[in-house]
Design a protein around this nucleic acid. Structure first.
Length: 494
RNA sequence: GGCCCGUUGGCGAAGUGGUUAACGCACCAGAUUUUCAAUCUGGCAUGCAGGGGUUCGAAUCCCCUACGGGUCACCA
């Protein structure tokens, strides 16, 4: 590459960073870093109706959390600013006027209602909805008349007729578009002076020296319009790479209101997913490493920077598999010190009313032990809540399987023996509890499953669970003994 | 409807003319562990949406059909 690579991520500040946006940002970031180029973040805020207060800050925050630092852009500045469309209005106006002067654009006085009616009529006749070019050749008199009516014009780009525009897409290959299929002359500047996406994006990309446009597939059909604009200005267009969509587990496009899946990075963050897990998961959505790395599942950001290339990006849509994300996050969670995971888990336990917001030293140590107990089973930090339920509940509920275990004849003997041992312990700690279990084995002659299951079930109500001695220790002597007594009573009364 | 794109096991997903069709998840079976988890080993597509071609040879190239998706705005 004879030119320094410059790519950008250009979200609109409509709220939180979406999974799809995060992947696009990640691919841009990796591409830039791989080639030693620049990664720019620009805010596409030209739809004022959809802009959300604070949306920009949230998106930037999520990007940083993922570890995707940018070299230039909003809030870090740079030589090609401003990096927010709404701060660039004069630039768009100036460029639109240049097209106007050259006859490559014209004023259009149609109202939105009129245009909508036109589209409807076309659709009703089974034709492609498009702009028919009503204002394409207005005489000065006609224009004056519209002006007198008080109509404010938009500016439309004059689409060349009978042309073909070819996108040499880096992931999709050669894609051709007939000019007749793009929907007619399109608006570049609205009556209020705010540009439309297609206009703003090409001017910004050009002025910011963007060399590669890596974005979602939904923009593929916008590309010919942008190509026309590059052509009209005599600019060389960048290379394009359109990433396939991310589908939900039902193989449908993820819409923002899709309830079947958690879609925003911020939500994963609060649930206790780790950024490296998200990055690792996201990059595999439509990209696969080459050769010997094809079998590898886990990649660090640095490794990804080294391995990433657009040639390895798939055209096929990627399916978002939440189970896989959990599995991946579990992998990274297990590598973290328990203290860190405990910090992530604490807010969830507090929110569930199980622990205070502020912990004493003892409570903190207890929490760390609790997390250690469940760490290898956690898909995310929030999982601690359901996993640790039995530690916070007074009543133990026995399911059928549990009842079957308790019904065995040797159970009362084991429970009673363990109760005696538990009550006699001078110091209640994990090691002591373990010894107590050994003592019960010696006293009753029951061992293994025969020994552990009755106690586990009586105390936790479950036939599955983490290490018993540790569980009993964390439960605390009082709770253990009272549950043993209750189980014993229940068995006695039958 | 026009134009674009996709379709590999229960699931995700490699594989772009010649491989026993990777790998992971899930599942099943053994091993280990005084229980439970974890861990380890092994098993798991006679077939790549369906049908036609091209070729000595096709998941890989071409055509048709089906299904799924994108896009056709003064949204990005």
């Amino acid at each position: 590459m004879d030119q320094r690579v410059r790519v950008r991520f250009a979200p609109s500040p409509t709220g939180h960073l979406h999974i799809g946006g995060a992947r696009t940002a990640l691919f841009n970031y990796l591409f830039a870093r791989h080639h030693g180029g620049d990664f720019i973040v620009r805010i596409e805020d030209t739809d004022q109706k959809r802009n959300v207060e604070g949306g920009e800050a949230k998106i930037l925050d999520s990007l940083r959390w993922l570890g995707l630092e940018w070299d230039e852009g909003v809030d870090v500045g740079g030589p090609h600013g401003p990096y927010r469309c709404m701060d660039r209005l004069a630039i768009y106006r100036e460029h639109a006027e240049r097209l106007l002067a050259e006859g490559k654009a014209y004023y259009c006085y149609c109202t939105e209602e009129e245009l909508a009616a036109e589209r409807e009529a076309l659709k009703a006749r089974g034709e492609m909805p498009r702009y028919l070019g009503k204002c394409r050749n207005l005489t000065p008199e006609q224009r004056a008349a519209y002006e007198r009516e008080g109509r404010k014009p938009s500016i439309r780009f004059r689409v060349p007729e009978g042309r073909e525009y070819v996108v040499e897409d880096l992931v999709r290959g050669t894609v051709r578009f007939e000019t007749s299929g793009v929907g007619g002359d399109f608006v570049i500047l609205r009556p209020d002076g705010i540009p439309t996406y297609n206009f703003a994006v090409t001017i910004d990309d050009h002025l910011m020296g963007i060399t590669h446009v890596i974005r979602g597939e939904e923009h593929l059909s916008n590309t010919p319009r942008q190509l026309m604009i590059y052509e009209a200005f005599g600019w060389e267009p960048p290379r394009f790479a359109h990433l396939s969509l991310i589908l939900n587990p039902n193989r449908q496009k993820m819409s923002k209101r899709d309830e079947s899946i958690i879609q925003f990075i911020e939500q994963y963050r609060t649930l206790g997913y780790l950024p490296e897990a998200l990055v690792n998961f996201l990059v595999l959505l439509g990209w696969a490493p080459e050769g010997e790395y094809a079998e590898q599942e886990f990649f660090s950001l640095d490794e990804l920077v080294r391995l990433f290339s657009l040639e390895r990006v798939s055209k096929a849509p990627a399916v978002f598999d939440p189970e896989r994300l959990r599995w991946m996050n579990n992998h990274y969670l297990r590598q973290r010190p328990a203290e860190e995971v405990a910090k992530l888990a604490h807010p969830h336990l507090a929110a569930a009313g199980r622990l205070p917001e502020v912990l004493s030293d003892d409570q903190w140590r207890w929490l760390v032990d609790l997390v250690t107990l469940f760490q290898e089973q956690m898909g995310c930090a929030a999982d601690i809540v359901p996993l640790s339920e039995l530690f916070f509940r007074e009543d133990v509920v026995y399911n059928e399987e549990a009842k079957a275990v308790l019904a065995e004849s040797h159970v009362p003997t084991v429970l009673a023996a363990f109760r005696r041992e538990a009550e006699a312990l001078t110091d209640w700690n994990a090691g002591a509890v373990k010894n107590a279990l050994k003592a019960v084995q010696k006293a009753t002659g029951h061992k293994g499953k025969q020994l552990f299951m009755p106690i586990r079930v009586a105390v936790t109500g479950q036939t599955h669970g983490p290490d018993l001695a540790q569980t009993l220790f964390l439960l605390g002597r009082e709770r253990v003994v009272s549950r043993l007594i209750r189980a014993l009573d229940a068995l006695a009364t039958g």
